[in-house]
Design a protein around this nucleic acid. Structure first.
Length: 482
RNA sequence: GGCCCGUUGGUCAAGCGGUUAAGACGCGGCCCUCUCACGGCUGAAACGGGAGUUCGAUUCUCCCACGGGUCACCA
């Protein structure tokens, strides 16, 4: 059975690249009926951020990515927090020393630094294996005296080849690799070491992570071989970029999951969008629920090259979700935003909400669409001139003047009656539809565009306000023309 | 700098030796229409460059250019 894991370190927010990795890990497992595991990697005591673990839980939950095992739900391979199994790692490191695959290193920070400074010509110095050649006695002596030490992996000679599901076969010369540190002087394992141990202990079959780990993968392989463990399937993912040159990061692009939610994006739309950022379905389709993604997912669709995060397309997709949404559901989602924009009590917010639904990308856009309801904006008489509608300031003035008594005399103030009344006036006057509707719509909204037409606007605003707004329009035009 | 990876329209991308090189976002036009939007139709827009292999390269190989990653007691 396939088992994948998401292994974030609790250092604060959850950015989009991270979330996409979690999504793919979830999809890889679930598309094959496997398990998705959450593990918290907190071996770096200095970067730990309080509350970060809760952000991880919350983000996954909102996204619809459910883990089968983890610190909160348990499982047979726990604990799922690395700092809680600190001593296990040391045991495995000691085992490697026994086997001659690792060794104690007592070098001081100063010596290591001077090693780096001594290099020239742009070459970066590798550790010189000074401690590999220490005698048994020297090691014993140092240990007994409590000299601070780390444990290093002894990289053997030769070449290492590994296979990646998206990048194919990659071969690296072992001499390019450093004897990396497995256990730090504070006794905690490094990420690379803890990862190998835990992935093995938790029976992870597919190791999925960012492509930046591609170059350390050979070291992982050497570790698996040293232990005699089975090597997992590797799936490396290209980065999510902010632009041509920069990866997406909170500092530069503020596109963390939380930020997007606050900007009014729907979790389903975000998930849908990022699923398609770096993966393409075999079928030509854009809109997927997370369950449909599970159904459609296939490793073969993963791409090798980095993808630029495009907020414009995300907005489009979010709009698709809004349009497809049940009217009542959309209303309950938009209600708060709507109420903060429209203070008038006599407005049928549900109706207004319905008009707005097909016209926005995110609910934050509602405000700019309905501002005119509370206060008629100041506008220029030139707004009445519309080439396509064949209107001029003169024709608009006449239309508004003629329509006033008709509306005043109306006893039923509904969209239908308003529309029909205006229609018969139009035929009576022998003018084009637009020559009546455009000026009325303009007078009622004071905007070049509005979320609905003249009759619907009138119905929404009510008789008194509608007539007042038309009167204002007449005055504006009369002043302009005199 | 060494090593590794990548390169199809502005963006996401399909393609897997022979195609009029899909589709989506965005942009333009038309239709629909009481404005805008929705919806429908439509247009402009791409294989980084050079050598090979081949009857034939976007697809395979090599070189170059450009971009990214990595070289920590960070993950």
């Amino acid at each position: 059975m396939i088992r994948t894991r998401f292994a974030p370190s609790p250092t604060g927010y959850m950015h989009i690249g991270n979330l996409r990795t979690a999504l793919y890990e979830y999809l890889i497992a679930k598309s094959k009926g496997g398990k998705f595991i959450l593990r918290i990697e907190d071996t770096d005591q200095e970067r730990y951020v309080e509350g970060a673990v809760d952000i991880i839980y919350k983000t996954l939950e909102l996204s619809g990515i459910k883990h089968d095992e983890g610190p909160d739900v348990g499982g047979d391979y726990g604990p799922y927090v690395q700092s809680e199994r600190k001593n296990d790692y040391l045991k495995y490191a000691l085992e490697l020393i026994e086997k001659g695959e690792a060794y104690y290193c007592f070098c001081t920070k100063e010596r290591l630094d001077s090693l780096k400074e001594s290099t020239e010509g742009g070459d970066v110095a590798k550790y010189d294996r000074h401690c590999l050649f220490l005698s048994k006695e020297e090691i014993e002596e140092n240990l007994k005296n409590g000299v601070s030490y780390v444990i290093r992996q002894k990289i053997k000679e030769g070449k290492t080849t590994f296979h990646d599901e998206v990048y194919g076969s990659i071969t690296v010369d072992n001499s390019d690799m450093e004897d990396q540190i497995l256990i730090k002087s504070d006794g905690y394992p490094t990420y690379n070491f803890a990862n190998v141990i835990d992935d093995h202990l938790m029976a992870i079959t597919h190791v999925v992570r960012g492509a930046e780990y591609l170059s350390s993968t050979p070291k992982y392989n050497l570790l698996y071989e040293a232990f005699g463990w089975e090597i997992p399937t590797y799936v490396h993912l290209p980065a999510v970029m902010k632009d041509q040159h920069n990866k997406l990061s909170k500092r530069n692009g503020d596109a963390s999951f939380q930020d997007l939610i606050e900007k009014g994006f729907l979790p389903e739309a975000i998930i849908n969008y990022i699923a398609l950022l770096g993966w393409a379905p075999s079928e030509n389709r854009e809109i997927f629920t997370i369950d449909e993604l599970i159904e459609a997912f296939d490793l073969k669709g993963l791409s090798k090259s980095p993808a630029i995060f495009d907020p414009v397309k995300l907005t489009w997709m979010n709009g698709e979700y809004i349009k497809a949404m049940d009217k009542d559901k959309f209303y309950s989602l938009a209600e708060d935003e709507l109420k903060s924009c429209v203070k008038r009590q006599d407005i049928d917010l549900k109706k207004l909400c319905g008009y707005v639904q097909s016209r926005i990308g995110t609910i934050k856009e509602i405000g700019s669409k309905v501002d005119f309801v509370d206060n008629l904006p100041e506008y220029e008489p030139s707004l009445y001139v519309h080439k396509k509608m064949k209107t001029t300031e003169e024709s608009s003035l006449e239309a508004l003047k003629k329509v006033t008594p008709v509306l005043e005399g109306l006893n039923k103030w509904t969209n239908d009656s308003l529309y029909n009344a205006m229609l018969s006036l139009i035929s009576e006057m022998g003018i084009k539809n637009g020559q009546m509707f455009w000026p009325v719509r303009t007078a009622l909204s004071g905007e070049p565009t509005s979320p609905c037409g003249a009759s619907e606007l009138a119905e929404l605003l009510g008789k008194e306000d509608s007539l007042a707004r038309i009167k204002k329009g007449i005055e504006l035009l009369e002043n302009a023309l005199s």
